[in-house]
Each structure stands twice: as C-alpha cells, then as structure tokens.
Design a protein around this nucleic acid. Structure first.
Lengths: 328, 328
DNA sequence: CTGTTAGCGCGTTCAC
DNA sequence: GTGAACGCGCTAACAG
C-alpha cells in the first residue's frame, strides 16, 4: 500500500530484507555481482509492490551523467526543417534512453547561458542548432568557441563555420540546387534561370548558387541568374526556374500568375528547400527536401559517440531528395 | 585557473576560507542568515574565480524539486497551434527559471511511461498537450486519471474531457466559428454555409458547429451545413462559407477554382483555425486565430501555481481573434 | 550576529 | 551478500 511519499531504495531494502546495495545490484542487473535468484526475486517484488522508481538525480550524481541532451536552437518553431530535425533528435535520443531538454533561444547575440545547463549537471551534451547565417542572429563561431572552452560535448547542426575538432551535421546546400537543376535538365529544359536574393553573400546562398552553376556548366548550358527584386519582369521568355527557397518560389508563382503565365505548362518552377506550406501553394510546389530528420538522428548519434569515448570530429552532409509536385 | 574538473562548493569554501554552509548561504542570498559583507565578497569572488556553478541535481535533491517542467505532447511538431503553444510555454517557464523537458509521444494509446519522469525526480510537473480527440490517438481520460493517481502536478492543454479537480486550458472551439460567422454577417452576408466533416462526432467538431449555429440564429439567418464530401457541387449558389479548419478551406478553395468561382468576389471563405500555410494558400486564407501562445503561457502559470501551494482547478478558454487576409 | 558542525537526501560501488 | 564511503549541495541546530 503506497503512502503519500515515494519509495526509496531504503524502503525496498527493508521490505526485501536485504541491504541497499543488493537492491542496486539487482535493479541495475549488474553483471559483476551474482545475486541468488531467491533474493533477486524478493527484491524485484518488493520494488514492484512499493512502486519504486530510482531517483534519477541521485543516480546521475554518482554516475556522472544526467542522461539528458540539451537542444539549443534559434529557429522559429514552425519551420519544417527545424521540426524535422526535432523528430530525428527525439527519436534517436529516446531510443538511447536519453531525454531532451529543450532550450529555445531568441536572438541574444552572445548569450551563452545555456552552458550552465551543462556545468550544473542538467545535461550531458548539446545539440546546437545554428540559425541560418543569413539571419544574422548569432556569431556562430563565438558560441562554438565558448562551448569548446567550457569542455562541453556538443554537435553543430546546420553550421556555417569550420572550427577544428568540432562535429558538424550540415545541409548540403550545393547539392540541393544541383539536384533541382539536374532534374529540370533531365526533363529536357535548357533555359533554366536561378532566382534568389543575389546581393546577399552568405555561405548558404553562395553554395546554392554554386550548385545551380555546376549543374548547368556540367551540361554546357548557359547560366542565368535573377535577383528576386527583378520579379515579375525577369520571367518573360523564361521556361524554367530554380529558386533557393520555397519563399522565393512563392514570389515567382505570384509573379507568374500576375503575368498570366501558366505553371507548369509555360514555366517550370522548383525550389531548393521544402517548407511546411510548399504543398499548399498554387500549384503545389515541387521542391528538394533537405533530410533534416536524418540530420537530427545523425546529430544525436554523433553526440552519443562523443559521450561514450572520444570520437573523431565529423562533417556529415546527407544528400537531399526530390519532392516533385505540380510545378515542374 | 580552472583545472579540468568542475569546482564544487567545497572548493569555493576552501578558496574563500569559510565553511561550505556559508557559501550556500551567500549564493542563495538566504534571508535568514546575515553574513558580513566582507566574507560575502570573499565568497562571491572565489565562486567567480573558480567559475563555480551549483550542481542542480544535488540541490534539487535537497530541495525536493528539479525546476524542470515536462511537456508531453502527441502533436505533430509542425502544426502551428502546437508551435505557438510551445512558444508560450518556453517563454513563461524560462521567465520563472524553469526548464523544459520535452517528451514527444507517438501514438501509443495507453503508454504513460512519462509518469516516470516525475517519479524519478526529473520533472516537477507536466503540461499535458492532448491531441485532437478526433484523431483517436489516446484515451485522454485514462491518461488524466493516471496522472491524478500518481499525484503528479499537471495541467491539460487542449483537453476534451472534464475530470474533477483538473485544470484545463482549452480551445474555445465554439467561439472560433462564432467569431468567423459573425464577421461574415457583419459584412452583410446572409447565405452563409458551414463546411466541415459532419458525420464525425467529437466535442471539437460539435462545438465548432455550435458556434456557427449560434451566430446564425442570433441574427435569424438560416443554417446550412455541408459535409466536405459534398464538395465541389455544394458550392453552387453559395455566397459565403465558414469551415472548421484551414484544411477544409483549402478543399473549398480548390473546388471553387475548379468550378471557376472567384474568391472572394463570388465566394467568401473563412476558416476557424490558422495553420502555418494559411497565408500561403491562393488566395491567402482569412482565418480565426486560436490564441495558442497565450494558452501555453497560461498552462505554465497554472502549473506553477499548483507547484507553489495548492491552487483551485481552473478551466480557461482564452478568446480567439480574426486574421483577415484575402478570402473574405 | 557570524559562522561551524553534522547530517540529510539517494543511489553507486568498493572492500570485506 | 553486507557495510560504508562517496558524490554534491542544503540546512537545522549549535557554538563563538
């Protein structure tokens, strides 16, 4: 009969008439110690009867780990790539019996207070989900250096830096546009333009531009780029468009609609990322899907390797995949 | 100079040449004890020099609380209402110096293993974000009873049950359609139909239907309902439509497009919830916004009240708001 | 009034 | 199989 208070290991020991160490051995099915089946059973039953649950703080204190992973992220919660990452992270970590402490950050440039979570023993490591460089939210390198200095095990998701000894799980931006462009080329298109914010110079945007250029020159096709500001006029005479993101594609679709251009008959459109709304655009937008869920899994895997013995730093960029809908 | 190991309270005590209790008093700015400014300063400085961070597990063990709130949710991560709730939850809890342990569940009817998080001291209470009843994912009442039985402090978000002594922060489904319908009435519409999945009978859907009916009969207008399956034909002759969700409205927009009906000129459309993609529909969909962010805040507030002294159970339904875009 | 000692809380682990 | 130290910080009771 359970009283108001939670049962402790002592209660179980008393109930099973053994010492607390035996209870611990039994419950952790320690291989080093051999406990007779008889006492083993007594302990198990006592634990069940008292509904005993080991206190995680106490055990973690001895074992030197909390079995909790901190996820620090600067992303808006409703961005598909982010939610996909979270799915992968939660799945992999719960499979490994880790839990997720969620630290949502709102742009405070150089606030590294999340480090405390590690220093106070709340978490064993960090999955650091960096925001797009182009948002200018944080100084990624600074955060990474702080984590290194604090000797906190961590992995960077969606990084845009290259710090020594750090594991990155990054988006293959170059591959995303390369894939999109190659798809259009494969469908027989020759006049393929790239539309994006061109005057901005961030790794992400330059990689995406690069992927487009690579695909075109591989097929000896002429490169043609337009800034989003040139919409809608730049659409005249175009047969196919690759955009950096769904957002830009949305603008292209609106411009085409305004000009009376039929998509996909007169103009093929494909975006190099998928957003939650991509399939709700009109017509439903063909995209390249960033394997964010897989990236989340990889991040946790990589972090776990770090936690269980020093692992080599890695740089992983899982390949993107096409999601063809109705705009090409 | 920091060694490899983290500093403990003992280190600080030694460094400041006081006993560990003094360190504790100073750092917790205990009001019961008065410590001379001199020693106080010595302690503070020593703590700073050693970069001392109290171990949360150890302190929680004594103080009987972890300062962590568990969020258990069955929602898809990319649903706007959910992400909004999370925003409110994270904001309010971090303001109160609580942290968020995130427990994403994937439909396993009666799995209440999250209770363990409370029993093992990982969390102090639970914000239980119930999935839509209509999804048939869980037996909400069962979960609630289990939490009650386990004597776990908790609050239910988006509940569809009515258990005694339980605090609910619920969606005002009735108000959402009432508001949408009233808006159309206010614009002079008289032929306003309600489109939704009518054959399903869940609290949520019935409340939404109710809101529409109330608004219509208040204005002595005739009620007219159509099941989503009657699309596109039921649109003929209609001037205005209220739908339960953006999803349904999306179907309506597609049907209208197919029939060559111009929205909003010939047909006004408004949905009783906002999704992330609502503004990306064509035309951008007018909706009613559920105050999910505020609900998240209220959930944490309510839970915190429970944690700091027994509070009355509450039932809160914050009002919805219009988000008029281009479909009406 | 300032500070100390002692012991608690809970589970793990080593020596016996 | 047991006893006891240990990990880390908090706090009640006590001494200067």
């Amino acid at each position: 009969m359970p009283q108001g208070k939670k049962a402790t290991i002592k209660d179980v020991a008393r109930e099973a008439k053994v010492s607390i160490s035996v209870v611990s051995y039994v419950l952790n099915s320690s291989t080093e110690k051999s406990i007779s089946p008889a006492t083993r059973d007594r302990v198990m039953e006592a634990a069940k009867r008292l509904q005993y649950v080991p206190n995680r703080a106490a055990s973690g204190m001895r074992r030197k780990h909390s079995m909790v992973i901190g996820v620090v992220s600067y992303w808006e919660l409703d961005v598909l790539v982010f939610t996909d990452m979270m799915k992968g992270i939660t799945r992999k970590s719960s499979a490994a019996n880790y839990r997720i402490l969620f630290c949502h950050r709102e742009s405070k440039q150089d606030d590294v207070s999340y480090l405390q979570y590690c220093q106070d023993g709340s978490i064993d490591g960090i999955v650091f989900i960096a925001p797009y460089e182009s948002l200018g939210l944080i100084d990624e390198a600074f955060h990474i250096r702080q984590m290194k200095e604090a000797k906190v095990p961590f992995v960077v998701l969606n990084g845009s830096t290259h710090e020594d000894g750090v594991s990155y799980i990054n988006v293959d931006y170059c591959g995303s546009t390369y894939l999109a462009t190659s798809y259009l080329i494969g469908k027989g298109h020759k006049d393929i333009a790239y539309v994006a914010p061109l005057e901005l110079h961030y790794t992400e945007l330059e990689r995406r531009l690069q992927g487009y250029q690579d695909a075109m020159s591989n097929s000896r096709l002429p490169v043609r780029c337009h800034d989003v500001k040139e919409l809608p006029d730049c659409l005249h005479g175009l047969k196919a468009v690759v955009t950096n993101k769904s957002d830009t594609a949305h603008s292209v679709l609106q411009a085409a609609h305004k000009l009376g251009i039929d998509v996909p008959r007169e103009l093929a459109v494909i975006a190099a990322n998928t957003e939650a709304y991509s399939s709700y655009l009109f017509p439903p937008l063909s995209t390249v899907r960033i394997p964010a869920e897989r990236m989340g899994e990889l991040a946790v895997e990589t972090l776990l390797e770090q936690l269980t013995g020093a692992a080599e730093p890695k740089l992983i960029m899982p390949p993107c995949a096409l999601e063809i809908r109705q705009t090409c």
